[in-house]
């Protein structure tokens, strides 16, 4: 028998603008330092001054410049982008579902995108990036639609347990379908890279497309963040305050799908970033989403840049999958949250 989830704890808006602002400014500063560090370490070590020079005074003939601008910079920018996108989509999902465990990796979104990717590669082996992006976006929508559709059939159905269980089953189903497609069309190798996450393939062409979309997505999220704060106190309260809850949910969910879909199309399925970052941020800036969302974007980027750098350094010159590094931090975090959540029910 499923035990019904009743959140009886009284909530209050905790907003700390001063801390929020300083977190953003300090965070951006830290992010830049991390980026310079990340670009300088690698198979060919390059000192900080050269990194700085080649980014701001690009010289086509320089070897270091080519490595930095051609390979490392797009990779790191991709990582920054994905970190921000995943963290923001996690924050939005946690706000909408009022479920502290909501996260693209656990709710069928990544699996759906993977399934779409498998289908696409089966029919068109050399799809262009824009097609891949569109497919992963549709797949993410499929996964999320299934999870939320099924868990909300019953009244009061969106309890953390039900959503996690539905997410787990949808994930199994879509992964099995993707594996089946991959086996029939001999794509196992291509998909396994995607499953463990790979940050090394990002190029400028992809970034030109992905950067504006992610920025617009995050901006929409920030515009709607006040309404999200209200929504996070419960549907009834939001309606009582005159909010059009369905509209807000649809817009924000679309943002989640776009952000998660782009992340998958760039680096593959990365779980736990969207789960962890908003919780860390909430600990610092309180429960006001006007601060949670921008701070999550900054924190997500920092976390992922550090993880990616660690992944390159742990077993150099081989790259450890970034998904593994994130999981090492993310697993204890999830278990802690699950334990806390279980206690509350």
């Amino acid at each position: 028998m499923l035990i019904k989830n009743k959140q009886t704890d009284e909530k209050q808006i905790v907003s700390r603008p001063v801390i929020g602002l300083s977190v953003i400014i300090l965070g951006l500063f830290v992010l830049v330092i991390c980026l310079v560090f990340a670009i300088s370490v690698g198979a060919a070590h390059i000192d900080f001054a050269t990194v700085w020079n080649s980014i701001f005074h690009y010289n086509e003939s320089g070897k270091a410049d080519q490595v930095i601008v051609g390979i490392r910079l797009p990779r790191e920018l991709g990582v920054v982008l994905v970190g921000a996108a995943l963290a923001v989509s996690g924050a939005i999902m946690q706000g909408i579902t009022r479920n502290p465990l909501a996260e693209p990796g656990l709710l069928g979104i990544n699996a759906g995108a993977g399934f779409a990717l498998a289908c696409l590669l089966a029919f068109q082996a050399h799809a262009s990036y824009i097609v891949i992006m569109f497919a992963t976006f549709l797949g993410a929508g499929l996964g999320a639609g299934m999870v939320f559709g099924i868990s909300s059939i019953k009244r009061g159905g969106l309890s953390p347990l039900r959503v996690i269980l539905a997410g787990s089953a949808v994930m199994y189903l879509l992964t099995a379908l993707a594996d089946g497609v991959a086996l029939v069309f001999h794509l196992t190798q291509d998909l396994s890279i995607w499953k463990i996450g790979s940050t090394s393939g990002t190029n400028w062409m992809q970034l030109r497309l992905a950067v504006p979309i992610v920025i617009i997505g995050i901006l929409i999220a920030i515009v709607f963040s006040k309404k999200l704060t209200i929504l996070s106190f419960g549907e009834d309260i939001a309606k009582g305050l005159g909010e059009r809850t369905t509209l807000i949910k649809v817009v924000l969910m679309a943002v989640v799908l776009v952000l998660a879909g782009i992340s998958v199309s760039l680096v593959g399925a990365l779980a736990f970033v969207g789960l962890m970052v908003p919780h860390m941020v909430r600990f610092l800036v309180g429960t006001d989403y006007r601060w949670i969302i921008p701070c999550s974007a900054v924190f997500g980027s920092i976390l992922l840049v550090l993880s990616d750098t660690a992944a390159r350094m742990i077993n150099a010159p081989f790259e450890t999958p970034i998904g593994a590094v994130v999981a090492i931090i993310g697993i204890p975090f999830f278990l802690y949250l699950a334990r806390r959540e279980g206690r509350r029910q």
């Binding site: 347990l161 996690i164 269980l165 699950a338 334990r339 279980g342 029910q345």
Partner: peptide, 11 residues
């Protein structure tokens, strides 16, 4: 508690 058991297991 059964609920917690399932949540932890899934994760």
């Amino acid at each position: 508690e059964p609920t917690r058991l399932v949540l932890v297991g899934v994760g």
